[in-house]
Design a protein around this nucleic acid. Structure first.
Length: 946
RNA sequence: AGGCGCGUAGCUCAGUGGGAGAGCGCUUCCUUGACACGGAAGAGGUCAGGGGUUCGAUACCCCUCGUGCCUACCA
């Protein structure tokens, strides 16, 4: 298209440039480079994901850094990839196959996993494609996937080493269980939402039972989950609660079961909540589990892994869904007259973060990472400043979380993921002592058949039974195991097929897979080739910066720090830049259910990737949520248009461009040119500094301000008279300046808006190479005097325009103006630029000097040290000018009063720094002068009027 | 309940111990040879409220109100 087009057409050029960059290898670092390295690993998006605003912000920031560093002379790697996202992906594919009436159990593990891979091949690349649309300069030749071969090796190595160091263990304890996903979840994977439930009060009869009389005593407990009472093994009361203290040690009969349970003293019970008496269900509540352990209570599990009542719940309730059972229990209690109260009650309930099903605390055997030593090392790395969190307000959050951290449950009862590299020997339990067949049956709770490689857990088994499958049908497809703690696992770097202790070939591999975050925790080094000692690893580890949202600070960042510290003996990254969360204009998280999602791809289609990226950068102030507004994207599209048209204008004067570097011009450079050269030097300096401090919004703001309001509004306007009607030698200097500044602008903007800058670059500069291969501007020459001098110029022009605007003088009308200067310097500057000022203000006659005398019928305005008069002759509207002046005087008098108050305050004079006092004095003098001039003018107007 | 933020122009947001800024919107004027996705000139704020520190507070401290998030708990 080129610059002949009226406006920039993103859709026409974006793909063209992207594929050209990629083809030319601009995204791939040079392996033999001696430049300093700079590396970023992308937070791998879920392979199921499609680009949302969070990704877009995250990726834009990384791309800005990547391009900036590359242009600044670094050997840059931005390594991309995706995460296999265990539960999420499995859920997606399960949903797909359910349309055909299939489920994963019917398909079997092997076939199902093949299906997921197939799905991944077909749809998994979507987000990658979307990152390309955004313009991301990722090195796609190094793209990784958390389940690919190399990363799986790393996972295995880490698992085995942790196992060998006894940092891994299996344990039976209460875990968060998702009855729909059929898997354990880590603490972090549970989301708490407030929901309205009911608080029931239930009477438990004290023993002995006094049948049929009024004398029966009761203790009344309160619960929100009456169905769990079937698994109660105690009632707890506060030891000093005198309503109940006399009952401690006595027994009650648990209604509906007939079981006898004890009343125990427990200081953690809050006497003011409910009835003050707490039912204790160690099998289904985390607090109750703790109480149970303390008091050595039995554990009765009444809910199964698919959320149904187990055999322990009794014949009447067995097999019921937990919520159905709740209704039935409540009805039964009511009938027995034991339900004394039920009221609405708001409480937070844990939900599965993937499928939103209410989680069920269940007793289960799982794998855990012993986290304490890893966590304290990870804390040390941040405390010692080896890793910097930016902004640092996150430090405290990080420490607090790491302090309270519990062991990490890493096993998941799903199929898509890294299968745990651990085996069990059913014959000797890995201690060399062979057991007999019937004992094996006993240890492995469920019957084992070895006709298929399709192993499922006990929970899955009960789920299948609930769907109506018979036992025989299930074991036709599956081998069902639940391996108790007593069996010692074997973990090795390579697959094994016999027990190292007893050589049995009946060993069984652990069917569970690892938490997705286990492999993500290794991402910064596994993607670079670890455990091999690769060149990439040597060059690019530790990575320079990690860019991420705070929502995965603990899921991911903390664990990477632990794993990096443990296995690389070094930090995984030096800086962690934590950006804001993108919210809607009401400050809410964007979510499908809220219907407030803005799709980045729609933004790109509508406004172009550049405008969208620039808006994101401008929004990315630190330590704040981003409330996204589409209007702002539109504003930045206008900015791009402005840049486009300015470039087009400059290109028109190409013929006057020479090879002479602008810095070789000395006296030939007029004031505006020196000023704009100084401006671009300043802007380059600021942009570099702000990017270095991760102040993307400031960098974007500086560039916007300079390009629009300095370069376009002033410099280009000033050059026009010369370009239209000037001499050729004057044009040469100006045109060279224009091209020079434009070139620097394009370079400075490129990390923010890669496409449009590349397009203009190629149209304006006959350079066939890419803008990506050029250097980022830094260390440009300053012209310090130009800044101050140009202010006189600007004051003069805007002063005259002010009068024109206020008095509504038609812009096409030429006027006269007089400017009284208060210094020689000001006079010289204005004299030198007389014609430019006249042109910009449409003056036909302009007088400048110290001795200018204001003519009678002129309007006046004072701009800093300039007094500007516009003689109006017949044009003068006395009434409106009078009104304007009175208003101005009123304002000034207010200011005088304020400054005066300060300058007569002795405490101020005594304590304030000298420069502040001096400033106030100067201000006072100027104000007094202004006020006098205006009073004078009002006087003159009065005489005219009269 | 504890912790961390936030409250600044109509809207979305920057910002600073020395009488506040941007973008969009609004008002008036202008289709002048890069650009109406434009130009010029404006209006608009008790910087949530109250107290304190200070010569001086929108900024620092405390309290209140409003609002958002995080962590834990909610029997």
């Amino acid at each position: 298209m080129g610059l002949l087009e009226k406006s920039f057409k993103p859709e026409v050029v974006e793909d063209k440039w992207y594929s050209r960059w990629e083809k030319n290898g601009f995204f791939t670092p040079d392996p033999d480079s001696d430049k300093p390295p700079f590396s970023i690993v992308i937070p791998p998006p879920n392979v199921t994901g499609s680009l949302h605003m969070g990704h877009a912000l995250n990726a834009t920031i990384q791309d800005i850094l990547t391009r900036w560093k590359k242009m600044s002379g670094f050997n840059v790697l931005w390594l991309p990839g995706t995460d296999h996202a265990g539960i999420a992906t499995q859920n997606v594919v399960e949903k797909e196959i359910s349309k055909e009436g299939l489920d994963r159990y019917k398909m079997g593990r092997k076939a199902f996993i093949e299906m997921v891979w197939k799905w991944k091949a077909e749809y998994g690349g979507r987000i990658i494609h979307q990152l390309k649309k955004l313009g991301c300069a990722c090195d796609w030749s190094r793209e990784r996937f958390t389940l690919d071969e190399g990363l799986s090796m790393a996972v295995r190595e880490v698992f085995v080493r942790l196992f060998e160091e006894e940092l891994l263990y299996r344990d039976d304890r209460l875990i968060n269980w998702c009855p729909r996903c059929h898997t354990a979840l880590s603490d972090l994977e549970v989301e708490y939402d407030e929901i309205e439930g009911r608080l029931y009060s239930i009477r438990y009869p004290l023993l002995p039972i006094v049948k049929g009389t009024e004398e029966q005593e009761y203790i009344t407990i309160a619960t929100t989950r009456p169905e769990t009472m079937l698994g109660d093994t105690a009632v707890a009361v506060h030891p000093e609660d005198n309503r109940y203290s006399h009952l401690i040690g006595k027994y009650v009969e648990l209604p509906l079961t007939g079981r006898k349970i004890k009343i125990v003293a427990e200081p953690t019970v809050d006497p003011s909540f409910g009835t003050g008496a707490l039912k204790v269900t160690p099998a289904h509540d985390f607090n109750d589990e703790a109480i149970g352990r303390l008091h050595n209570l039995p554990v009765v599990s009444v809910i199964t892994e698919d959320g149904q009542m187990s055999e322990n719940a009794g014949e009447r309730y067995k097999g019921l869904d937990r919520y159905e059972c709740r209704k039935k229990v409540v009805a039964d209690l009511k009938e027995l007259g034991l339900l004394t109260d039920q009221r609405k009650h708001l409480h937070a309930v844990g939900h599965c973060y993937r499928c939103k099903t209410i989680i069920e605390p269940l007793l289960n055997i799982q794998w855990y990472v012993r986290i304490e030593s890893l966590a304290s090392e990870a804390v040390r790395l941040v405390k010692d400043g080896k890793i910097r969190l930016i902004p640092e307000i996150w430090d405290n959050n990080y420490y607090a979380w790491m302090k309270d951290i519990r062991d990490w449950c890493i096993s998941r009862q799903i199929w898509w993921g890294h299968q745990i590299p651990a085996w069990y020997c059913p014959e000797c339990r890995n201690n060399g002592d062979k057991l007999q067949g019937d004992i094996i049956e006993h240890i492995f709770h469920k019957p084992v058949t070895l006709n298929d490689n399709n192993i499922i857990s006990g929970g899955t088994y009960s789920y299948l039974r609930s769907t109506g499958m018979s036992h025989d049908e299930i074991i036709k497809h599956s081998k069902i195991i639940s391996i108790p703690k007593e069996v010692k696992p074997i973990s090795q770097r390579h697959d094994i097929n016999e027990c190292p202790a007893c050589q049995s070939r009946n060993i069984i591999r652990d069917p569970d897979v690892l938490d997705t975050w286990f492999s993500s925790a290794l991402w910064p080094f596994s993607t670079l080739g670890w455990p091999e000692n690769t060149k990439d690893l040597k060059t690019f580890y530790p990575t320079s910066v990690l860019v991420t949202g705070f929502d995965i600070l603990f899921f991911w960042v903390a664990r990477m720090i632990m794993m990096g510290g443990k296995f690389m003996n070094d930090v995984p990254f030096r800086d962690v830049y934590i950006h804001a969360l993108v919210r809607d204009s009401g400050g809410h998280k964007m979510s499908k259910s809220r219907g407030n999602v803005i799709d980045p791809l729609v933004m790109i289609d509508k406004y172009g990737a550049d405008a969208f990226r620039f808006a994101l950068a401008a929004f990315a102030a630190q330590g704040r949520d981003v409330r996204f507004s589409e209007k702002r994207v539109e504003g930045y599209r206008h900015f791009i248009n402005k840049l486009w048209n300015a470039s087009k204008f400059i290109l028109n004067y190409k013929e006057f461009r020479t090879d002479k570097p602008v810095y070789e011009y000395k006296d030939e450079l007029d004031l505006p040119s020196r000023w704009i050269l100084n401006g671009i030097a300043l802007t380059a300096q600021e942009t570099n500094r702000e990017l270095g401090e991760y102040h993307f919004n400031d960098a974007a703001g500086s560039l916007y301000q300079f390009v629009w309001h300095e370069f376009c509004d002033w410099y280009i306007e000033i050059t026009k008279p010369v370009l239209y009607k000037g001499k050729d030698e004057d044009k040469e200097v100006i045109v060279n300046c224009l091209f020079f500044v434009l070139q620097k602008i394009l370079l400075l903007l490129h990390p923010f808006m890669p496409f449009v800058t590349e397009e203009i670059w190629n149209s304006v500069f006959d350079d066939s190479s890419s803008i990506m291969a050029s250097s980022y501007p830094a260390g440009l020459q300053f012209y310090p005097d130009a800044e101050v001098k140009m202010n006189y110029f600007i004051d003069a022009v805007s002063g005259i325009r002010h009068i024109r605007g206020e008095l509504n003088i038609n812009p096409s009308l030429e006027i006269k103006a007089d400017i009284r200067t208060l210094s020689n310097e000001a006079e010289a500057v204005l004299q030198d630029n007389l014609s430019a000022i006249m042109k910009l203000t449409k003056c036909s006659d302009l007088n400048i000097g110290e001795n200018i005398i204001r003519s009678k019928d002129s309007a006046v305005t004072i701009k800093n040290s300039l007094e500007i008069y516009v003689p109006l002759g017949g044009l003068l509207d006395v009434k409106s000018e009078m009104a304007r002046l009175k208003k101005e005087r009123e304002k000034i008098e207010g200011e005088i009063a304020f400054v005066n108050k300060k300058l007569t305050n002795e405490d101020f004079l005594k304590n304030a720094p000298d420069n502040i006092v001096e400033k106030e004095r100067e201000k006072f003098d100027i104000l007094i002068q202004k006020s006098q001039k205006i009073s004078e003018s009002i006087g003159i107007l009065k005489t005219i009027k009269g």
